[in-house]
Nucleic acid binder design. Structure first.
Lengths: 212, 212
DNA sequence: GCGGTAAGTTCTACGCCGTAGGTTTGCCGG
DNA sequence: CCGGCAAACCTACGGCGTAGAACTTACCGC
C-alpha cells in the first residue's frame, strides 16, 4: 500500500475511521482487529489514526457507537401501544446485531448509556407511563428487556457453530427431557423464535403490571 | 522469581493453571491477562503452560469453565416446583457472576453448552414438563431465562461506574420520564432488584404456559 | 545396576502488537 | 513571503503469543 507524502491529507476523520473499523471487525473478527490492520485498510500510517481517536479502546468504543447508530426504531412514535414500541425497538436492535454479529459483543459490554439507547428507553417508558402502568414496573422494564435482548442476541450471534443451539451436543441418555424437546428447537436463531421469546418477556411485564 | 532447574517438576496441571488464571483475571482484569503474567504468577516459564493447555484461547476456556463449576444449585432437587428450581439456579448463577465479575464476560460468550449448564437445564425442563407445562413453552424457557441472566448480569457486573445504572447520566430535561423514574432505580445491582426482574421473566413464562 | 524412552520444563527466537516521541510537509493568515 | 499549525509519517521500545529445540528427570524392561 503506497503511502502519500508526509504532509498531504488522507481525509481521515472520526467517522470514516469508525466505519472502517466496523467493516474490518465484521470481516476479520474481533481477535484479528488491530490498529495496524485498520491503518492498512485505510491506506494510512497506524499513528495517523491516533490524531483522531485516543487509542485502541477508544477505537472500539467508536465502532460500537457507530453500529448502535444504525438502529432504526421504525416509526415507533406512530404507535402509542407500549408493547408495540418495545417490539419495534427490539427488532431494530436485533437487526443490527444480525448485521454486525462480530461487533455486537462490543456493543453489549461497551456502549451502555449511549444517546441512542437512552432515547429509545425514554420513548418506551413514556408510553408505558401514559398507559397507566405502575411506576415500579415501568422503571424495571428497561433492565429486564435489554437484559434479555443483550443476553439472547449475544448467544444467537456468537462465533460458535453455524446454528448455535442453546444446548449443543449432549448425552441424550443422561438428559432425556432435553433430548425430547430438541425437535422444538429447530428454529433457533430465527425471527420466529425471537418473537416468541420476546413475547414471553413482554407478557411477564404485562402481568407484573396487572398484579402489582 | 527464581526458576527451578530444567527437569524438575513444577507440579503443574490443568486445574491448578485454571485456578490461577481465574485469580489473575479477578485481580488484574481481562485486558491485563496474558500467558506470561500467568506464568510469573505460577513461578514458571510461559511455555510450560502450553504442555497442559493448548494456547491462550484454551486458557480462557479453562478459566470460564472453572468459574462455571463453582455454581451451586443449592438443593434444587429438593423442590419439584419448577419456578423454585429456576430461582435457585438463577441465584447460584448470579452469585458466581458477582464473585468473579471480570471473568463473567468470558463465561457468557464462551462456555455455552458446558456440562454444568446442560445439567441445570435438564433439571429445570424436567420439572416443568412434569408440572404439565406445554412443550413449546418448556423448550423456549432456557433461551429466555439464560438470555436474561447473561444480559442482565453482564450489565450489572461490568467494569463500568461504581453503580452502573441501566441509564447513566443523561439530560434530565430531554428525558423527563426517565428522570422521574430515577428514584425507583436506587437499588440497581442489588439482590432485591435481581429478584424483581427475575420474577417478571418467570411470570412471563407462567402466563405463556397458561395462554398457550 | 543400566540403557532407552517419554514427559515435563526451560531457553531462544520470530513476528506482531500498541503507542510514545520526534520529524516532515502542506496550508493559511498576516 | 513567511511563520505557525495541524495532519500525517517514521522510528523505536517493550510486551505479547507461541513454534521449535535443548535439557533434565523419572521410570521401565532387562
Amino acid at each position: 500500500m503506497a503511502r502519500r507524502a508526509r504532509g498531504t491529507s488522507a481525509g481521515l476523520d472520526r467517522h470514516r475511521i469508525a466505519t472502517a473499523a466496523v467493516a474490518l471487525v465484521d470481516r476479520d473478527g474481533l481477535e484479528r482487529f488491530g490498529v495496524r490492520r485498520l491503518a492498512d485498510e485505510l491506506g494510512v500510517d497506524p499513528m495517523s489514526i491516533y490524531h483522531h481517536v485516543k487509542g485502541k479502546a477508544a477505537l472500539l468504543d467508536a465502532a460500537s457507537e457507530a453500529v448502535l447508530h444504525e438502529v432504526e426504531i421504525g416509526a415507533a412514535e406512530a404507535s402509542d401501544d407500549w408493547a408495540e414500541i418495545a417490539r419495534r425497538t427490539a427488532h431494530g436492535y436485533r437487526a443490527v446485531a444480525c448485521r454486525h454479529p462480530r461487533v455486537f459483543p462490543l456493543v453489549v459490554v461497551r456502549a451502555r448509556t449511549s444517546p441512542v439507547t437512552v432515547a429509545a428507553v425514554e420513548r418506551l417508558v413514556t408510553a408505558m407511563r401514559a398507559a397507566g402502568l405502575p411506576d415500579r414496573v415501568v422503571a424495571d422494564t428497561p433492565g429486564v428487556l435489554f437484559g434479555f435482548l443483550n443476553g439472547h442476541l449475544l448467544a444467537r450471534t456468537g462465533e460458535g457453530p453455524e446454528v448455535p443451539a442453546p444446548v449443543g451436543e449432549f448425552d441424550a441418555a443422561a438428559h432425556p427431557t432435553t433430548a425430547a424437546l430438541a425437535p422444538l428447537l429447530s428454529d433457533v436463531g430465527s425471527v420466529a423464535e425471537f418473537d416468541r421469546l420476546l413475547d414471553t418477556v413482554l407478557a411477564g411485564i404485562r402481568v407484573s403490571a396487572a398484579s402489582g
